[in-house]
Design a protein around this nucleic acid. Structure first.
Lengths: 255, 255
DNA sequence: CTATAGACACTTGTATACTAGTCTGCAAGC
DNA sequence: GCTTGCAGACTAGTATACAAGTGTCTATAG
Protein backbone atom coordinates (compact mmCIF):
# COMPACT_ATOMS: atom_id res chain seq x y z
CA UNK A 1 0.00 0.00 0.00
CA UNK A 2 1.03 3.57 -0.37
CA UNK A 3 0.32 6.86 1.23
CA UNK A 4 -1.42 8.48 -1.71
CA UNK A 5 -4.27 6.02 -1.85
CA UNK A 6 -4.57 5.85 1.91
CA UNK A 7 -4.64 9.58 2.43
CA UNK A 8 -6.03 10.87 -0.82
CA UNK A 9 -7.00 14.28 0.44
CA UNK A 10 -3.59 15.23 1.75
CA UNK A 11 -1.73 14.12 -1.32
CA UNK A 12 -4.25 15.01 -3.96
CA UNK A 13 -3.58 18.70 -4.15
CA UNK A 14 0.14 18.26 -4.40
CA UNK A 15 -0.03 15.54 -6.98
CA UNK A 16 -2.62 17.02 -9.28
CA UNK A 17 -0.16 19.72 -10.23
CA UNK A 18 2.77 17.39 -10.62
CA UNK A 19 3.32 15.71 -13.92
CA UNK A 20 4.98 12.36 -14.10
CA UNK A 21 7.93 12.32 -16.49
CA UNK A 22 7.59 9.93 -19.38
CA UNK A 23 3.83 10.03 -19.51
CA UNK A 24 3.27 12.84 -21.96
CA UNK A 25 2.45 15.24 -19.17
CA UNK A 26 -0.72 13.46 -18.18
CA UNK A 27 -2.17 14.75 -14.95
CA UNK A 28 -2.74 12.41 -12.08
CA UNK A 29 -6.34 11.23 -11.89
CA UNK A 30 -8.52 13.71 -10.09
CA UNK A 31 -10.40 11.08 -8.17
CA UNK A 32 -8.34 8.48 -6.43
CA UNK A 33 -9.57 5.03 -5.63
CA UNK A 34 -11.85 4.92 -2.63
CA UNK A 35 -9.40 4.35 0.21
CA UNK A 36 -11.23 1.89 2.45
CA UNK A 37 -12.18 -0.47 -0.32
CA UNK A 38 -9.49 -3.08 -0.01
CA UNK A 39 -11.79 -5.36 -1.97
CA UNK A 40 -11.41 -3.67 -5.32
CA UNK A 41 -8.21 -4.85 -6.92
CA UNK A 42 -5.59 -2.29 -7.71
CA UNK A 43 -5.09 -3.80 -11.13
CA UNK A 44 -8.74 -3.05 -11.88
CA UNK A 45 -8.20 0.51 -10.80
CA UNK A 46 -5.19 0.83 -13.08
CA UNK A 47 -7.05 -0.76 -15.96
CA UNK A 48 -10.06 1.51 -15.59
CA UNK A 49 -7.89 4.59 -15.34
CA UNK A 50 -5.84 3.73 -18.42
CA UNK A 51 -8.78 2.46 -20.43
CA UNK A 52 -10.72 5.63 -19.86
CA UNK A 53 -7.72 7.82 -20.61
CA UNK A 54 -7.17 5.99 -23.87
CA UNK A 55 -10.82 5.92 -24.92
CA UNK A 56 -11.16 9.62 -24.26
CA UNK A 57 -7.94 10.33 -26.14
CA UNK A 58 -6.32 11.90 -23.11
CA UNK A 59 -3.59 9.39 -23.90
CA UNK A 60 -3.06 9.76 -27.62
CA UNK A 61 -2.66 6.75 -29.90
CA UNK A 62 1.03 6.08 -30.32
CA UNK A 63 1.99 7.76 -27.05
CA UNK A 64 4.80 6.05 -25.19
CA UNK A 65 3.78 4.16 -22.11
CA UNK A 66 5.99 2.36 -19.66
CA UNK A 67 5.19 0.21 -16.69
CA UNK A 68 7.35 2.14 -14.22
CA UNK A 69 5.97 5.46 -15.45
CA UNK A 70 2.37 4.37 -15.03
CA UNK A 71 3.18 2.81 -11.68
CA UNK A 72 4.64 6.12 -10.52
CA UNK A 73 1.71 8.03 -11.99
CA UNK A 74 -0.87 6.05 -10.02
CA UNK A 75 1.36 5.40 -7.01
CA UNK A 76 1.21 1.65 -7.24
CA UNK A 77 3.80 -1.01 -7.89
CA UNK A 78 4.57 -2.52 -11.25
CA UNK A 79 2.71 -5.77 -10.64
CA UNK A 80 -0.87 -4.50 -10.99
CA UNK A 81 0.23 -2.19 -13.81
CA UNK A 82 1.54 -5.19 -15.64
CA UNK A 83 -1.74 -7.02 -15.27
CA UNK A 84 -3.63 -4.00 -16.52
CA UNK A 85 -1.28 -3.74 -19.51
CA UNK A 86 -1.90 -7.38 -20.35
CA UNK A 87 -5.65 -6.83 -20.43
CA UNK A 88 -5.28 -3.68 -22.47
CA UNK A 89 -3.14 -5.56 -24.97
CA UNK A 90 -5.86 -8.20 -25.17
CA UNK A 91 -8.38 -5.46 -25.96
CA UNK A 92 -6.11 -3.90 -28.55
CA UNK A 93 -5.60 -0.62 -26.74
CA UNK A 94 -1.94 -1.06 -25.86
CA UNK A 95 0.89 -2.64 -27.77
CA UNK A 96 3.92 -4.06 -26.01
CA UNK A 97 7.26 -4.81 -27.64
CA UNK A 98 9.40 -6.95 -25.33
CA UNK A 99 12.56 -5.29 -24.12
CA UNK A 100 11.73 -2.16 -26.07
CA UNK A 101 8.67 -0.50 -24.69
CA UNK A 102 4.94 -0.09 -24.73
CA UNK A 103 2.68 2.44 -26.33
CA UNK A 104 -0.94 3.32 -26.66
CA UNK A 105 -1.88 1.21 -29.65
CA UNK A 106 -2.22 3.23 -32.83
CA UNK A 107 -5.55 2.79 -34.55
CA UNK A 108 -5.37 -0.07 -37.00
CA UNK A 109 -7.59 0.10 -40.06
CA UNK A 110 -7.75 -3.65 -40.11
CA UNK A 111 -8.99 -3.87 -36.55
CA UNK A 112 -11.48 -1.11 -37.18
CA UNK A 113 -12.82 -3.06 -40.13
CA UNK A 114 -13.04 -6.19 -38.02
CA UNK A 115 -14.84 -4.38 -35.24
CA UNK A 116 -17.34 -2.94 -37.69
CA UNK A 117 -17.93 -6.35 -39.20
CA UNK A 118 -18.45 -7.94 -35.79
CA UNK A 119 -20.70 -5.21 -34.56
CA UNK A 120 -22.78 -5.24 -37.71
CA UNK A 121 -23.14 -9.00 -37.63
CA UNK A 122 -24.17 -9.10 -33.98
CA UNK A 123 -26.56 -6.18 -34.14
CA UNK A 124 -28.20 -7.60 -37.22
CA UNK A 125 -28.69 -10.94 -35.52
CA UNK A 126 -29.96 -9.24 -32.38
CA UNK A 127 -32.43 -7.23 -34.43
CA UNK A 128 -33.69 -10.34 -36.19
CA UNK A 129 -34.05 -12.14 -32.90
CA UNK A 130 -35.79 -9.17 -31.32
CA UNK A 131 -38.49 -8.94 -33.97
CA UNK A 132 -39.06 -12.64 -33.51
CA UNK A 133 -39.99 -12.32 -29.85
CA UNK A 134 -43.64 -12.32 -28.90
CA UNK A 135 -43.71 -9.43 -26.43
CA UNK A 136 -41.71 -6.67 -28.04
CA UNK A 137 -41.92 -3.44 -26.10
CA UNK A 138 -40.27 -0.55 -27.93
CA UNK A 139 -41.28 2.22 -25.54
CA UNK A 140 -37.93 2.24 -23.73
CA UNK A 141 -35.83 2.27 -26.88
CA UNK A 142 -38.04 4.94 -28.44
CA UNK A 143 -37.47 6.99 -25.33
CA UNK A 144 -33.72 6.58 -25.78
CA UNK A 145 -33.96 7.72 -29.40
CA UNK A 146 -35.79 10.82 -28.24
CA UNK A 147 -33.21 11.53 -25.55
CA UNK A 148 -30.48 11.02 -28.12
CA UNK A 149 -32.17 13.45 -30.49
CA UNK A 150 -32.51 16.04 -27.76
CA UNK A 151 -28.87 15.63 -26.75
CA UNK A 152 -27.88 16.26 -30.36
CA UNK A 153 -30.15 19.29 -30.51
CA UNK A 154 -28.56 20.94 -27.50
CA UNK A 155 -25.08 19.78 -28.59
CA UNK A 156 -24.51 17.81 -25.39
CA UNK A 157 -21.70 15.54 -26.44
CA UNK A 158 -21.56 13.41 -23.30
CA UNK A 159 -25.31 12.78 -23.29
CA UNK A 160 -25.21 12.05 -27.02
CA UNK A 161 -22.47 9.51 -26.51
CA UNK A 162 -24.21 7.95 -23.54
CA UNK A 163 -27.68 7.63 -25.07
CA UNK A 164 -26.21 6.26 -28.27
CA UNK A 165 -24.47 3.62 -26.19
CA UNK A 166 -27.63 2.70 -24.29
CA UNK A 167 -29.61 2.65 -27.49
CA UNK A 168 -27.49 -0.02 -29.06
CA UNK A 169 -27.45 -1.87 -25.76
CA UNK A 170 -31.22 -1.89 -25.70
CA UNK A 171 -31.35 -3.78 -29.00
CA UNK A 172 -29.57 -6.67 -27.34
CA UNK A 173 -31.83 -6.45 -24.33
CA UNK A 174 -34.87 -6.71 -26.58
CA UNK A 175 -33.31 -9.72 -28.24
CA UNK A 176 -33.03 -11.41 -24.86
CA UNK A 177 -29.23 -11.39 -24.78
CA UNK A 178 -28.43 -8.25 -22.76
CA UNK A 179 -25.12 -9.58 -21.49
CA UNK A 180 -23.82 -9.81 -25.04
CA UNK A 181 -23.42 -6.08 -24.86
CA UNK A 182 -20.54 -6.50 -22.41
CA UNK A 183 -18.89 -8.58 -25.06
CA UNK A 184 -19.48 -5.98 -27.74
CA UNK A 185 -17.99 -3.32 -25.55
CA UNK A 186 -14.74 -5.26 -25.47
CA UNK A 187 -14.54 -5.49 -29.23
CA UNK A 188 -15.49 -1.94 -29.97
CA UNK A 189 -13.06 -0.08 -27.75
CA UNK A 190 -11.24 0.72 -30.97
CA UNK A 191 -14.32 2.38 -32.37
CA UNK A 192 -14.78 4.47 -29.24
CA UNK A 193 -11.64 6.40 -30.02
CA UNK A 194 -12.80 7.08 -33.55
CA UNK A 195 -16.19 8.19 -32.32
CA UNK A 196 -14.51 10.50 -29.86
CA UNK A 197 -12.51 12.08 -32.65
CA UNK A 198 -15.58 12.38 -34.78
CA UNK A 199 -18.13 13.46 -32.20
CA UNK A 200 -18.35 17.07 -33.27
CA UNK A 201 -19.18 16.00 -36.78
CA UNK A 202 -21.41 13.13 -35.71
CA UNK A 203 -23.56 15.17 -33.37
CA UNK A 204 -24.20 17.62 -36.17
CA UNK A 205 -25.13 14.84 -38.58
CA UNK A 206 -28.88 14.54 -38.58
CA UNK A 207 -28.76 11.29 -40.50
CA UNK A 208 -27.48 9.44 -37.44
CA UNK A 209 -30.47 10.32 -35.31
CA UNK A 210 -32.68 9.63 -38.30
CA UNK A 211 -31.22 6.16 -38.66
CA UNK A 212 -31.81 5.47 -34.99
CA UNK A 213 -35.45 6.33 -35.52
CA UNK A 214 -35.62 4.19 -38.64
CA UNK A 215 -34.25 1.20 -36.75
CA UNK A 216 -36.75 1.60 -33.94
CA UNK A 217 -39.57 2.03 -36.43
CA UNK A 218 -38.49 -1.12 -38.21
CA UNK A 219 -38.41 -2.89 -34.86
CA UNK A 220 -41.94 -1.78 -34.04
CA UNK A 221 -43.19 -2.81 -37.50
CA UNK A 222 -41.11 -6.01 -37.35
CA UNK A 223 -39.77 -5.03 -40.74
CA UNK A 224 -36.68 -7.17 -41.10
CA UNK A 225 -35.56 -6.01 -44.52
CA UNK A 226 -35.51 -2.32 -43.67
CA UNK A 227 -33.98 -2.89 -40.23
CA UNK A 228 -31.12 -5.00 -41.55
CA UNK A 229 -30.44 -2.50 -44.29
CA UNK A 230 -30.39 0.51 -41.97
CA UNK A 231 -28.25 -1.24 -39.38
CA UNK A 232 -25.74 -2.06 -42.09
CA UNK A 233 -25.75 1.52 -43.29
CA UNK A 234 -25.48 2.81 -39.72
CA UNK A 235 -22.51 0.69 -38.71
CA UNK A 236 -20.72 1.25 -42.00
CA UNK A 237 -20.86 4.99 -41.52
CA UNK A 238 -17.84 4.97 -39.23
CA UNK A 239 -15.77 3.45 -42.02
CA UNK A 240 -16.22 6.36 -44.40
CA UNK A 241 -15.72 8.83 -41.56
CA UNK A 242 -12.51 7.06 -40.65
CA UNK A 243 -11.05 7.79 -44.04
CA UNK A 244 -11.45 11.46 -43.34
CA UNK A 245 -10.09 11.15 -39.80
CA UNK A 246 -7.03 9.36 -41.06
CA UNK A 247 -6.11 12.43 -43.05
CA UNK A 248 -6.86 14.71 -40.14
CA UNK A 249 -4.94 12.71 -37.50
CA UNK A 250 -2.33 10.74 -39.44
CA UNK A 251 -0.19 10.20 -36.34
CA UNK A 252 -2.98 8.33 -34.62
CA UNK A 253 -3.09 5.60 -37.23
CA UNK A 254 -0.94 2.63 -37.88
CA UNK A 255 1.39 2.96 -40.81
CA UNK B 1 15.30 -19.71 -15.07
CA UNK B 2 15.23 -23.21 -13.69
CA UNK B 3 16.98 -26.49 -14.20
CA UNK B 4 14.12 -28.38 -15.77
CA UNK B 5 13.76 -26.13 -18.76
CA UNK B 6 17.49 -25.73 -19.18
CA UNK B 7 18.26 -29.43 -19.03
CA UNK B 8 15.08 -31.05 -20.19
CA UNK B 9 16.57 -34.42 -20.99
CA UNK B 10 18.03 -35.03 -17.57
CA UNK B 11 14.96 -34.01 -15.66
CA UNK B 12 12.32 -35.23 -18.04
CA UNK B 13 12.38 -38.89 -17.13
CA UNK B 14 12.18 -38.22 -13.45
CA UNK B 15 9.42 -35.68 -13.73
CA UNK B 16 7.17 -37.48 -16.13
CA UNK B 17 6.49 -40.05 -13.46
CA UNK B 18 6.08 -37.55 -10.67
CA UNK B 19 2.71 -36.05 -10.11
CA UNK B 20 2.37 -32.61 -8.66
CA UNK B 21 0.12 -32.53 -5.61
CA UNK B 22 -2.94 -30.37 -5.95
CA UNK B 23 -3.23 -30.72 -9.68
CA UNK B 24 -5.52 -33.72 -9.95
CA UNK B 25 -2.62 -35.99 -10.79
CA UNK B 26 -1.90 -34.35 -14.11
CA UNK B 27 1.35 -35.47 -15.64
CA UNK B 28 4.00 -32.97 -16.50
CA UNK B 29 3.92 -32.03 -20.17
CA UNK B 30 5.78 -34.51 -22.31
CA UNK B 31 7.44 -31.85 -24.40
CA UNK B 32 9.15 -29.09 -22.55
CA UNK B 33 9.70 -25.69 -23.99
CA UNK B 34 12.56 -25.58 -26.44
CA UNK B 35 15.48 -24.70 -24.19
CA UNK B 36 17.43 -22.24 -26.30
CA UNK B 37 14.44 -20.14 -27.22
CA UNK B 38 14.73 -17.27 -24.82
CA UNK B 39 12.48 -15.33 -27.15
CA UNK B 40 9.24 -17.12 -26.41
CA UNK B 41 7.75 -15.84 -23.20
CA UNK B 42 7.27 -18.29 -20.37
CA UNK B 43 3.79 -16.95 -19.75
CA UNK B 44 2.88 -17.94 -23.31
CA UNK B 45 4.20 -21.40 -22.66
CA UNK B 46 2.14 -21.68 -19.48
CA UNK B 47 -0.95 -20.36 -21.25
CA UNK B 48 -0.62 -22.77 -24.14
CA UNK B 49 -0.07 -25.71 -21.83
CA UNK B 50 -3.06 -24.90 -19.63
CA UNK B 51 -5.31 -23.91 -22.52
CA UNK B 52 -4.69 -27.16 -24.32
CA UNK B 53 -5.12 -29.20 -21.15
CA UNK B 54 -8.45 -27.53 -20.50
CA UNK B 55 -9.72 -27.71 -24.08
CA UNK B 56 -8.87 -31.39 -24.27
CA UNK B 57 -10.51 -32.01 -20.89
CA UNK B 58 -7.30 -33.31 -19.39
CA UNK B 59 -8.07 -30.71 -16.75
CA UNK B 60 -11.72 -31.24 -15.97
CA UNK B 61 -14.14 -28.35 -15.59
CA UNK B 62 -14.39 -27.48 -11.92
CA UNK B 63 -10.99 -28.94 -11.07
CA UNK B 64 -9.07 -26.98 -8.48
CA UNK B 65 -6.16 -24.98 -9.80
CA UNK B 66 -3.71 -22.91 -7.86
CA UNK B 67 -0.93 -20.66 -8.95
CA UNK B 68 1.78 -22.34 -6.85
CA UNK B 69 0.66 -25.79 -7.99
CA UNK B 70 0.84 -24.89 -11.66
CA UNK B 71 4.13 -23.10 -11.12
CA UNK B 72 5.57 -26.24 -9.56
CA UNK B 73 4.06 -28.38 -12.30
CA UNK B 74 5.76 -26.44 -15.07
CA UNK B 75 8.83 -25.49 -13.04
CA UNK B 76 8.36 -21.78 -13.37
CA UNK B 77 7.69 -19.02 -10.90
CA UNK B 78 4.29 -17.69 -10.03
CA UNK B 79 4.59 -14.50 -12.10
CA UNK B 80 4.12 -16.00 -15.56
CA UNK B 81 1.53 -18.40 -14.19
CA UNK B 82 -0.40 -15.44 -12.92
CA UNK B 83 -0.33 -13.78 -16.33
CA UNK B 84 -1.50 -16.98 -17.97
CA UNK B 85 -4.33 -17.26 -15.44
CA UNK B 86 -5.42 -13.72 -16.21
CA UNK B 87 -5.67 -14.48 -19.90
CA UNK B 88 -7.51 -17.72 -19.25
CA UNK B 89 -9.98 -15.86 -17.07
CA UNK B 90 -10.50 -13.41 -19.93
CA UNK B 91 -11.27 -16.31 -22.21
CA UNK B 92 -13.63 -17.87 -19.70
CA UNK B 93 -11.59 -21.02 -19.12
CA UNK B 94 -10.52 -20.30 -15.55
CA UNK B 95 -12.35 -18.68 -12.70
CA UNK B 96 -10.52 -16.99 -9.86
CA UNK B 97 -11.99 -16.15 -6.49
CA UNK B 98 -9.72 -13.75 -4.63
CA UNK B 99 -8.23 -15.12 -1.43
CA UNK B 100 -10.04 -18.41 -1.95
CA UNK B 101 -8.76 -20.20 -5.00
CA UNK B 102 -8.97 -20.82 -8.70
CA UNK B 103 -10.52 -23.56 -10.72
CA UNK B 104 -11.01 -24.66 -14.27
CA UNK B 105 -14.17 -22.77 -15.12
CA UNK B 106 -17.24 -24.97 -15.15
CA UNK B 107 -19.19 -24.81 -18.38
CA UNK B 108 -21.77 -22.09 -18.18
CA UNK B 109 -24.95 -22.52 -20.17
CA UNK B 110 -25.23 -18.79 -20.52
CA UNK B 111 -21.77 -18.46 -22.00
CA UNK B 112 -22.43 -21.38 -24.30
CA UNK B 113 -25.56 -19.68 -25.53
CA UNK B 114 -23.65 -16.46 -26.05
CA UNK B 115 -20.90 -18.22 -27.96
CA UNK B 116 -23.43 -19.93 -30.20
CA UNK B 117 -25.16 -16.64 -30.86
CA UNK B 118 -21.91 -14.90 -31.69
CA UNK B 119 -20.68 -17.68 -33.88
CA UNK B 120 -23.95 -17.94 -35.73
CA UNK B 121 -24.10 -14.20 -36.30
CA UNK B 122 -20.55 -13.97 -37.58
CA UNK B 123 -20.70 -17.02 -39.80
CA UNK B 124 -23.96 -15.85 -41.29
CA UNK B 125 -22.49 -12.46 -42.07
CA UNK B 126 -19.37 -14.06 -43.48
CA UNK B 127 -21.47 -16.32 -45.68
CA UNK B 128 -23.47 -13.39 -46.98
CA UNK B 129 -20.33 -11.44 -47.66
CA UNK B 130 -18.70 -14.40 -49.36
CA UNK B 131 -21.52 -14.94 -51.85
CA UNK B 132 -21.32 -11.25 -52.65
CA UNK B 133 -17.71 -11.44 -53.81
CA UNK B 134 -17.02 -11.58 -57.50
CA UNK B 135 -14.42 -14.34 -57.58
CA UNK B 136 -15.72 -17.06 -55.34
CA UNK B 137 -13.62 -20.20 -55.52
CA UNK B 138 -15.14 -23.09 -53.59
CA UNK B 139 -12.68 -25.78 -54.62
CA UNK B 140 -10.66 -25.53 -51.42
CA UNK B 141 -13.64 -25.60 -49.10
CA UNK B 142 -15.19 -28.47 -51.05
CA UNK B 143 -11.93 -30.32 -50.60
CA UNK B 144 -12.15 -29.73 -46.85
CA UNK B 145 -15.69 -31.06 -46.76
CA UNK B 146 -14.50 -34.20 -48.50
CA UNK B 147 -11.61 -34.62 -46.09
CA UNK B 148 -14.00 -34.10 -43.22
CA UNK B 149 -16.34 -36.73 -44.60
CA UNK B 150 -13.49 -39.20 -45.00
CA UNK B 151 -12.26 -38.53 -41.47
CA UNK B 152 -15.76 -39.29 -40.19
CA UNK B 153 -15.90 -42.45 -42.28
CA UNK B 154 -12.70 -43.85 -40.82
CA UNK B 155 -13.60 -42.56 -37.34
CA UNK B 156 -10.49 -40.39 -37.11
CA UNK B 157 -11.46 -38.02 -34.34
CA UNK B 158 -8.45 -35.74 -34.55
CA UNK B 159 -8.74 -35.30 -38.32
CA UNK B 160 -12.48 -34.77 -38.01
CA UNK B 161 -11.93 -32.05 -35.43
CA UNK B 162 -9.19 -30.43 -37.46
CA UNK B 163 -10.96 -30.39 -40.82
CA UNK B 164 -14.14 -29.12 -39.22
CA UNK B 165 -12.09 -26.28 -37.76
CA UNK B 166 -10.46 -25.43 -41.08
CA UNK B 167 -13.79 -25.65 -42.84
CA UNK B 168 -15.37 -22.95 -40.76
CA UNK B 169 -12.18 -20.93 -41.05
CA UNK B 170 -12.39 -21.12 -44.82
CA UNK B 171 -15.78 -19.43 -44.81
CA UNK B 172 -14.17 -16.34 -43.31
CA UNK B 173 -11.32 -16.54 -45.76
CA UNK B 174 -13.78 -16.56 -48.65
CA UNK B 175 -15.50 -13.55 -47.13
CA UNK B 176 -12.19 -11.68 -47.19
CA UNK B 177 -11.86 -11.50 -43.41
CA UNK B 178 -9.62 -14.47 -42.58
CA UNK B 179 -8.19 -12.89 -39.45
CA UNK B 180 -11.65 -12.78 -37.92
CA UNK B 181 -11.22 -16.46 -37.33
CA UNK B 182 -8.63 -15.75 -34.67
CA UNK B 183 -11.26 -13.72 -32.93
CA UNK B 184 -13.82 -16.50 -33.17
CA UNK B 185 -11.38 -18.96 -31.71
CA UNK B 186 -11.19 -16.83 -28.59
CA UNK B 187 -14.94 -16.79 -28.13
CA UNK B 188 -15.53 -20.42 -28.82
CA UNK B 189 -13.06 -22.01 -26.45
CA UNK B 190 -16.10 -22.89 -24.38
CA UNK B 191 -17.58 -24.79 -27.27
CA UNK B 192 -14.38 -26.71 -27.83
CA UNK B 193 -14.83 -28.50 -24.55
CA UNK B 194 -18.38 -29.45 -25.44
CA UNK B 195 -17.31 -30.66 -28.85
CA UNK B 196 -14.62 -32.73 -27.22
CA UNK B 197 -17.19 -34.36 -24.93
CA UNK B 198 -19.51 -34.93 -27.83
CA UNK B 199 -17.06 -36.03 -30.49
CA UNK B 200 -17.93 -39.70 -30.43
CA UNK B 201 -21.56 -38.85 -31.06
CA UNK B 202 -20.81 -36.08 -33.52
CA UNK B 203 -18.53 -38.10 -35.71
CA UNK B 204 -21.23 -40.73 -36.02
CA UNK B 205 -23.84 -38.15 -36.91
CA UNK B 206 -24.13 -38.06 -40.68
CA UNK B 207 -26.20 -34.91 -40.59
CA UNK B 208 -23.17 -32.83 -39.65
CA UNK B 209 -21.22 -33.77 -42.74
CA UNK B 210 -24.39 -33.37 -44.75
CA UNK B 211 -24.84 -29.83 -43.45
CA UNK B 212 -21.26 -28.99 -44.34
CA UNK B 213 -21.99 -30.08 -47.88
CA UNK B 214 -25.22 -28.12 -47.97
CA UNK B 215 -23.43 -24.96 -46.88
CA UNK B 216 -20.78 -25.34 -49.55
CA UNK B 217 -23.42 -26.07 -52.15
CA UNK B 218 -25.30 -22.95 -51.11
CA UNK B 219 -22.05 -21.02 -51.37
CA UNK B 220 -21.42 -22.27 -54.88
CA UNK B 221 -25.01 -21.52 -55.94
CA UNK B 222 -24.89 -18.20 -54.05
CA UNK B 223 -28.11 -19.27 -52.41
CA UNK B 224 -28.39 -16.97 -49.43
CA UNK B 225 -31.66 -18.25 -47.99
CA UNK B 226 -30.59 -21.88 -47.83
CA UNK B 227 -27.11 -21.04 -46.58
CA UNK B 228 -28.32 -18.86 -43.75
CA UNK B 229 -30.88 -21.45 -42.74
CA UNK B 230 -28.40 -24.33 -42.71
CA UNK B 231 -25.76 -22.32 -40.84
CA UNK B 232 -28.33 -21.52 -38.19
CA UNK B 233 -29.31 -25.14 -37.92
CA UNK B 234 -25.68 -26.22 -37.84
CA UNK B 235 -24.59 -23.88 -35.08
CA UNK B 236 -27.71 -24.52 -33.02
CA UNK B 237 -27.04 -28.21 -33.00
CA UNK B 238 -24.55 -27.91 -30.17
CA UNK B 239 -27.27 -26.43 -27.98
CA UNK B 240 -29.49 -29.50 -28.11
CA UNK B 241 -26.49 -31.78 -27.69
CA UNK B 242 -25.46 -29.77 -24.65
CA UNK B 243 -28.72 -30.59 -22.93
CA UNK B 244 -27.83 -34.24 -23.20
CA UNK B 245 -24.24 -33.67 -22.09
CA UNK B 246 -25.39 -31.78 -19.06
CA UNK B 247 -27.14 -34.90 -17.84
CA UNK B 248 -24.16 -37.06 -18.66
CA UNK B 249 -21.53 -34.84 -17.03
CA UNK B 250 -23.39 -32.82 -14.41
CA UNK B 251 -20.19 -32.00 -12.50
CA UNK B 252 -18.75 -30.20 -15.52
CA UNK B 253 -21.53 -27.63 -15.61
CA UNK B 254 -22.22 -24.58 -13.56
CA UNK B 255 -25.03 -24.92 -11.07
C1' DC C 1 -21.84 -35.62 22.03
C1' DT C 2 -22.28 -31.02 20.23
C1' DA C 3 -21.08 -26.43 19.39
C1' DT C 4 -18.02 -22.80 19.22
C1' DA C 5 -13.72 -20.38 19.11
C1' DG C 6 -9.14 -20.14 17.63
C1' DA C 7 -4.99 -21.58 15.33
C1' DC C 8 -3.24 -22.86 11.03
C1' DA C 9 -2.60 -23.91 6.31
C1' DC C 10 -3.54 -22.18 2.04
C1' DT C 11 -5.21 -18.99 -1.23
C1' DT C 12 -4.53 -14.75 -4.20
C1' DG C 13 -2.91 -9.71 -4.33
C1' DT C 14 0.90 -6.67 -4.15
C1' DA C 15 5.64 -4.98 -3.71
C1' DT C 16 10.35 -5.38 -4.68
C1' DA C 17 14.72 -7.36 -6.49
C1' DC C 18 17.03 -9.28 -10.23
C1' DT C 19 18.00 -10.70 -15.20
C1' DA C 20 18.47 -10.07 -19.88
C1' DG C 21 17.70 -7.77 -24.00
C1' DT C 22 17.49 -3.26 -26.84
C1' DC C 23 18.14 1.48 -28.05
C1' DT C 24 20.83 5.79 -27.81
C1' DG C 25 24.57 8.63 -27.79
C1' DC C 26 29.21 9.52 -27.55
C1' DA C 27 33.87 8.66 -28.68
C1' DA C 28 37.53 6.63 -31.07
C1' DG C 29 39.31 5.02 -35.34
C1' DC C 30 39.22 4.91 -40.43
C1' DG D 1 33.04 13.43 -42.35
C1' DC D 2 31.56 8.83 -41.78
C1' DT D 3 31.43 4.50 -39.69
C1' DT D 4 32.01 1.41 -35.91
C1' DG D 5 32.33 -0.08 -31.24
C1' DC D 6 31.30 0.46 -26.54
C1' DA D 7 29.08 2.22 -22.35
C1' DG D 8 25.15 3.45 -20.14
C1' DA D 9 20.35 3.99 -19.36
C1' DC D 10 16.39 2.52 -20.44
C1' DT D 11 12.80 -1.48 -21.34
C1' DA D 12 9.97 -5.70 -20.10
C1' DG D 13 10.21 -10.62 -18.22
C1' DT D 14 10.87 -13.26 -14.31
C1' DA D 15 11.73 -14.62 -9.49
C1' DT D 16 10.99 -14.00 -4.77
C1' DA D 17 9.22 -11.98 -0.49
C1' DC D 18 5.51 -10.13 2.04
C1' DA D 19 0.64 -8.99 3.22
C1' DA D 20 -4.11 -9.92 3.79
C1' DG D 21 -8.03 -12.64 3.60
C1' DT D 22 -10.62 -17.29 3.75
C1' DG D 23 -11.79 -22.00 4.83
C1' DT D 24 -10.89 -25.91 7.57
C1' DC D 25 -9.63 -28.55 11.19
C1' DT D 26 -8.91 -29.20 15.93
C1' DA D 27 -9.26 -28.51 20.67
C1' DT D 28 -11.84 -27.13 24.36
C1' DA D 29 -15.93 -25.82 26.91
C1' DG D 30 -20.72 -26.70 27.73
Amino acid sequence: MNAARENPTTELGARSNSRVPGLAGLDAPRQLRRPGASRGRISDYVYDELCEAIRYLRLEPGAALSEPAVAAWLNVSRAPVREAFARLVEHGLVSVVPQVGSQVAPISMREVGDAVFIRNALETSAFQQAIGTADLDTTRIQQLVDENREAAARNDIEAFFETDEQLHHQVFTLAGVPHLWQFIRGTKLQLDRLRRMNLEAAIANEEIVHEHQQIVDALARRDEAVGVQVIHQHSSRILVDTEKLRDEFPDYFES
